[in-house]
Design a protein around this nucleic acid. Structure first.
Length: 433
DNA sequence: TCTGGGGTCCTAGGACCC
DNA sequence: TCTGGGGTCCTAGGACCC
């Protein structure tokens, strides 16, 4: 038995905590570079704004429909997420933080009225953090996810499901006939694990609802699609295939990729960007006490533009696994040199650190093992991270990153960013008497 | 003018081995 | 003319997730 606690329109809800004037208005939060909408308020959804809608195509609604757009402010969202997660954890003995706005709770052994308990947690999160949540419960993660969808959809558009399932929905408490009704009213594409591609294939053979999917033969599904979709079918039938992952494994790769604010074609600017990206990836790598064995760097033009396309990547193996910024930047720049061709309007670049392993120095093992950084390098990296953490990102960096300034064209656009209300002293909101 | 970023898992096919 | 069977490992690409 699982619950899924999920913040409604999470990024928009975070912005509204400090901007109550935005309640009731159509609001979108934009991706990096203010490229497209990645979160939408209910009012924005009602205007027909789709997930991923390009900003330049919906911008006119600022004048015609009082649409408000904000650049993404991940420092704010991350902080409010932490607060929400710690309250959601009160629902049961184990929690898996699945994404910035969702966590699964294992309800095994929890006694009493689950729906009443969930409503209490939901009210607490709303009052203490200011974020409205939906809570779904079911025998499997897939059913909990579906229940969450029901809880939120019913709240947003009354009448889509029985009214008592709004905000908190426990599918496990429904009689079989009522469960079938709910599954029958849910589109197959709204099932967790069914995306655009498989959704289209299912619809083609007449499977349009979650109920129809749940009634397929798992063996047939495995033969025709894959073991992944088979698990989805079994989970819909109430057989758990996925357990709670409360201590996720160390990640297998670390990436830092960005679109440029403006197209870049010259090598020097690319070297600056790649230095910056590799440095940031290295920082991330050190926070999880990992070493990388390979560095991948890629550059590409914009697939949306009608102009000569270019997309290349290079993977550079390291002599020994490392988390040293200078080593990782050096490898990334060598890779860049090998794939760079002049004459293209490049839109994006990225650095990925691959083939990760645990840093033996942080495992309490002998530092002499292959893979360990020399002690002075480790101290240098710690000092670097400490200074940048204390005095702000970019306080100390490699010279090849170049200096910020108006001549720097590749940095991303964020013209509509809200203040760091909870993460920056200068931006703390002021309470007036 | 202007279209995000960061992940995971599975599968098919090739290289290679005995 | 006729050319096995079983296995591992790696990689690229596809599909999904938020």
């Amino acid at each position: 038995m699982y619950a899924l606690v999920d913040g409604n329109n999470f990024f928009v809800s975070c912005e509204r905590v400090f901007r109550p004037d935005l309640r009731g208005l159509p609001v979108v939060v934009l991706s990096n570079n203010d490229g497209c909408a990645i979160a939408r308020s209910n009012e924005a959804k009602a205007l027909g704004i789709k997930m991923g809608a390009p900003w330049f195509k919906i911008r006119h609604m600022v004048d015609t429909h009082r649409l408000v757009a904000l650049s993404s402010n991940f420092a704010l969202y991350g902080d409010l997420s932490d607060r929400m997660m710690s309250l959601a954890a009160g629902l049961g003995p184990h929690q898996e933080i699945y994404s910035i706005d969702e966590s699964f709770i294992d309800l095994t052994g929890v006694r009493g009225n689950l729906v009443a308990r969930a409503h209490a947690i939901r009210a607490r999160i709303l009052q203490w953090v200011g974020i409205p949540c939906g809570i779904g419960m079911g025998a499997t993660k897939t059913l909990a996810k579906l229940a969450n969808h029901v809880a939120k959809t019913t709240e947003r558009t009354p009448g889509s499901y029985p009214a008592h399932l709004a905000q908190v929905c426990n599918l496990a408490a429904l009689a079989p006939v009522d469960l079938a009704t709910v599954l029958g009213a849910t589109a197959v594409r709204d099932v967790w694990g069914v995306g655009r591609r498989i959704g289209a294939q299912l619809e083609k053979i007449g499977i349009t609802t979650a109920l129809q999917l749940a009634r397929l033969d798992p063996a047939m599904v495995r033969a025709r699609w894959s073991v992944v979709l088979e698990s989805t079918v079994r989970e819909l039938q109430g057989t758990p295939c996925y357990g709670l992952d409360s201590a996720p494994a160390r990640s297998q790769q670390v990436a830092y990729t960005r679109s440029f604010g403006q197209p870049v074609s010259n090598l020097v600017e690319l070297q600056e960007a790649v230095t910056e990206f590799a440095s940031r990836a290295a920082e991330k790598l050190r926070t999880q006490n990992s070493l990388a064995s390979q560095v991948l760097v890629y550059i590409r033009t914009s697939p949306f533009r009608q102009e000569p396309q270019y997309s290349r990547s290079a993977t550079v193996p390291l002599h020994r696994p490392s988390a040293d910024t200078t080593v990782l930047v050096g490898a990334a720049l060598a890779g860049l040199q090998s794939i760079y061709r002049p004459g293209f309007q490049l839109a994006k670049a990225g650095v990925m650190l691959l083939d990760l392993q645990a840093d033996p120095q942080h495992q309490g093992e002998l530092a002499l093992q292959a893979g360990a950084l020399p002690a002075d390098r480790t101290r240098l990296m710690s000092a670097l991270d400490g200074l940048n953490q204390r005095y702000g990102r970019g306080t100390v960096l490699l010279a090849s990153a170049g200096l910020a300034g108006p001549q720097r064209t590749w940095t991303m656009k964020q013209e509509l960013r809200s203040p760091g209300y909870t993460t920056c002293w200068a931006d703390l909101p002021v309470a007036k008497a």
